[in-house]
Every structure is written in structure tokens, then in C-alpha cells.
Amino acid sequence: MAQILFYAFALFTLACAVGVVVNKNAVNAAMCLLLSLVGVAGLFVQLDAYLLAFLLLLVYAGAVVALFLFIVMLLDMKDTAAHGFRKISGFASVFALGLLVTGVSTFVVRGRLTTPNPNLAAAVGTDLKHYAYQLFTTYLLPVQVIGFLLLIAMLGVIVLSKRWEGLDDIK
């Protein structure tokens, strides 16, 4: 049962990811991104990382995709469907896709990756206490740096979206 669920979530995630890439309409692409993120959250649940699955849904599927949809509506691109893609970039992207998948799959299939038994390892991701302990001891400085980064991002967005006088001659 769990095996079937795993393959269902994996296929769902990958299919929706392909949907993001091939959709002509940007709104449909954003919706496919949302579904793909839900699939990844399902895989997180199967890896016993419940908090991260919840955060992924909250931050990505909630905030980020809503922001994307908002910007797509705001920009209102009419001529999107008229643009196809160039043949050279299509060739290069298919080549890169094949190269990446082949590289990692040979690395994985040849057994270079030792697979520990998941039932022997403790499922530390289930407990909220472990996250809190790590964040407030080992990763205390990164937490502060991340807080500062969010402040800088907020200031940056305010500066970017403000209309500045006298900069209109830059074309």
C-alpha cells in the first residue's frame, strides 16, 4: 500500500513538473507548480518529515504560488502564446535533461550510493523538539543571519517597487 502511494506521489510530482515546463499559459504553469509541490509534500510525509511537509505547503504552495499568480495577473501578458522556442535552445535543453538524468542514474544504479536501512535509523524528523534543539544550539548563528536576510529582502523589495524620479532616461 505504502509502496503504491510512493509511486503515485512520485509520478504525480514529475508529471506536474513537466506540466510547469510545457504549458504555454503562465497561469496554468503556476497551477501545475502548486500540484507538483503538493506531490513533494506527500513524499516528505512518507519520509517522516511532517513539519517540513507542512511548511512546504504553507510557504511554497501558499505564499510563493499565490505571489506568482498575482504577478502573472498583474503583468497580463497577451503575446505569450505567439512565442515558441528556438530550435537550438530546444536541442540544448533536451540534451541537458538527458545528460543530467543519465549521470545521476548511473551513479545511483551502479550502487555507489550505499543504502542504509531506514528502519534502523531513528526517524528524527518527526519530532518538533529536535528541530528546536538544533536551531537554537548548533544553528543559532545561521538563524540570525536568515533573519537579517529577510530584513534585507524586505527593504530590497520596497526599494525596487518604489517609483524613483529622474531615472526614466535609462532605456
Binding site: 513538473a17 510547469v20 515546463v21 502573472v72 505569450t80 535552445s89 541537458a96
Partner: peptide, 20 residues
């Protein structure tokens, strides 16, 4: 994870809309 990454990379190379 690798296939998902490769699909994302494919999209970055293929598409010309900045939002996508």
C-alpha cells in the same frame, strides 16, 4: 529528486518567459 531537478533545468533552458 534528480529527475525533478533535470525537468527544472530543462524549463530554464527552454522557456523564454521570465516568470516560467
Amino acid at each position: 529528486s534528480a529527475v525533478l531537478f533535470a525537468i527544472g533545468f530543462f524549463g530554464v533552458l527552454l522557456r523564454r518567459n521570465t516568470l516560467v
